[in-house]
Structure formats: C-alpha cells, structure tokens
Amino acid sequence: MTTPQNPALVLVDRAYRGSVETQFADVLYIIRELNRQTGGLHLALRGHAVTYAVAAPEYEPSVHLGSRTLDTLPDPRRSVRTMLDEGATVWVEEADLQRIGPKAASRLLPGTRTAAPGELALRWFSYSQVWFM
C-alpha cells in the first residue's frame, strides 16, 4: 500500500519524448499528478533525464511554426520545481550528472538530492512501488 510513509519510487531514464505533440502532457505531468494522488513520491532521474533537474537559463519553451507561435512546449525544470514545492523528493544519479560536466552540474535545482551508483537500487525494497515511466 502506497502511503507518504511508504512512498512509490518513479524512475525516468528516457528524456525528451516529444515537444510539439506532447506540450504539457509529458511524463512529469503524470508524475506530478501521481505525487498528488499518493501524498508524496520519490522521483529519480537518470541518463539524459537528469537535465530535467538542471536549470536551463537559455531555454524558452516556444517555437515558431508558420504563423503560429507555439509557446506551450514542455518545461521540465518548471515541472520539477513545482513537484519539489509540492513535496516530492527528487533524485538525480551522480554518474549521469557528472557526464554533463561540472558547469551544468552546478545548476542543479535547489532541493534536488544526488544518489551514488547503486544507492537507490539498494532501497527498492523500502518503496511500495518501483516504476519506470
């Protein structure tokens, strides 16, 4: 049974799965809703998805397509900040953070925790659910 004392762990290891067709309805949207439904979950970001928790000062979630300005593209950092504010615990895996270099790694969103290799896996028994999404 998933409770705030026995939370679910959701891992995301595939990133950038569609922008124009996805807009607000990306995987973080689902996970934010699950965070609300479950009373607080843990989100672990791996691979390229660690960049969801790295500030992107030059990114505007907007493109011009013909006469249309589509300004509703996914904004994963905003989603992660919101989830942190709403009580989710957000992890990034250190190995993947190191891969993007020290400058980018220094922009890790405040409140995000880092996990050493294997650290989270060794805790899987303590989570009510372990889901890759």
Partner: peptide, 16 residues
C-alpha cells in the same frame, strides 16, 4: 492510483 491500490502488485510496462 486507486486502481494500483486495488491490486496485489502493479507493474508499469513500457513508457509513453
């Protein structure tokens, strides 16, 4: 969430 709570075990298969 309600549906997962009604199951002994819940798995997620694939990603959207």
């Amino acid at each position: 969430h309600e549906h997962t709570q009604a199951a002994g075990k819940a798995l997620t298969l694939g990603v959207c």
